[in-house]
């Protein structure tokens, strides 16, 4: 990998399970490993139920009550003396509260999820600043105005006293971003930050995220289902399917030479602005299985065009080794083996 700086967060072999009312446990994440590096954007892409949001929530320890981390580590500042395993901290403890917002910020898909209707924008942002490191009311207010200016909100001196419901969707998401940045975190998780927005607003918000991430050297984890957003924003890409990272690679490699059959199929099924009229799209047969009906072996095998009977449907291929480009697929493993022999 081009960047060998130490990651700010390393997720290792993370497994998360949800208990269902009256049913057995459902595995939502299975051995997920990811690295977030300063100044880089990790794009996490996948369809519904792939576990991309669960990963984010686990990293902030805000899983729903019926979910729990079953295995693995989430290391903050790995390899440094301050290394902390987030999975080992009490979820509601002081340290975790410091990390949430202070070290790792979160941008929601629906900014209303993070904002209260009863308080002004300024109130909420000032609270976020003062909870972590109180500089006093007057200073905090000045910082909020600067923050609002940073996220591209026009006339921040007046907007600071408006209520979220008085703002348009685009401005609300800007406030959502300001809220995530209030305590100056160096890691930012954006969970589908533009899915609820119109396309022109999306372009603005993506440009803003890009600028902030570069300026502040933030390690950004961008979660989306949109391959276009990934192509425009990500440095590295993790493709997830049914709770596993099936492929990890730098963005150019993923688009130019996808390794995993799922990535290949996903890329082909994206509607194209240059396609001839009435041209058909490549599809992936079937649908994403329900999480409680996880296929045995490789989770993608029932939909995979390259499925090897007796192998893919019995054992799961090894996860992608952290920090290396690769795919969790027997076909890819075999190809690498052949290449190795030839060399």
């Amino acid at each position: 990998m081009a960047d060998n700086s130490l990651p700010l967060v390393s997720v290792r072999n993370l497994a998360v399970e949800f208990t269902q009312h009256g049913g057995g446990p459902v595995r939502a994440l299975d051995s997920v490993s990811l690295d977030l590096r300063p100044g880089r954007v990790l794009g996490v892409v996948g369809e519904s139920g792939c576990g991309k949001s669960v990963t984010a929530r686990a990293m902030l320890r805000i899983l729903d009550r019926n979910g729990s981390i079953k295995n693995g580590q989430i290391l903050l500042d790995p390899g440094t003396p301050q290394q902390t395993d987030i999975t080992a901290l009490p979820g509601e403890g002081n340290r975790m509260r410091e990390i949430r917002g202070g070290r790792i910020g979160l941008i929601f898909q629906e900014p209303m999820a993070a904002l209260s209707m009863q308080y002004t924008v300024g109130n909420q942002l000032m609270e976020a600043i003062r909870v972590h490191n109180d500089p006093g009311k007057a200073v905090a207010r000045q910082r909020v105005i600067k923050l609002l200016n940073d996220v591209g909100i026009p006339r921040p001196e007046t907007r600071i006293d408006t209520y979220p419901f008085q703002l348009s969707g685009g401005l609300r998401q800007r406030v959502g971003i300001a809220l995530a940045l209030a305590a100056d975190p160096d890691v930012l998780i954006a969970d589908e930050p533009t899915t609820a927005l119109d396309v022109t607003t999306q372009a603005q918000i993506l440009a803003l995220l890009r600028r902030l991430q570069v300026d502040k050297k933030i390690a950004l984890m961008l979660i989306t289902h949109d391959m276009g957003v990934i192509a425009q924003m990500a440095d590295d890409v993790a493709v997830m399917y049914l709770g596993r990272v099936v492929e990890f690679a730098p963005v150019n490699e993923v688009f130019a030479a996808p390794r995993h059959p799922y990535t290949q199929a996903l890329l082909r099924s994206v509607p194209n602005l240059r396609a001839p009229p009435h041209s058909r799209l490549a599809t992936i047969g079937g649908a994403v299985p329900q999480p409680n009906a996880r296929p045995k072996g490789c989770p993608f095998h029932p939909r995979c065009p390259d499925m090897m009977p007796g192998r893919c449907d019995t054992t799961a291929p090894a996860p992608v080794p952290p920090g290396q480009a690769g795919a969790s697929c027997f076909k890819v493993e075999d190809a690498a083996l052949v290449e190795g022999v030839a060399a």
Binding site: R280, A282, G285
Partner: peptide, 15 residues
Amino acid sequence: MSATTASSASSGASL
């Protein structure tokens, strides 16, 4: 490649 041609039948098969 089966994935490119399969449109309808494939999805219905797995009820």
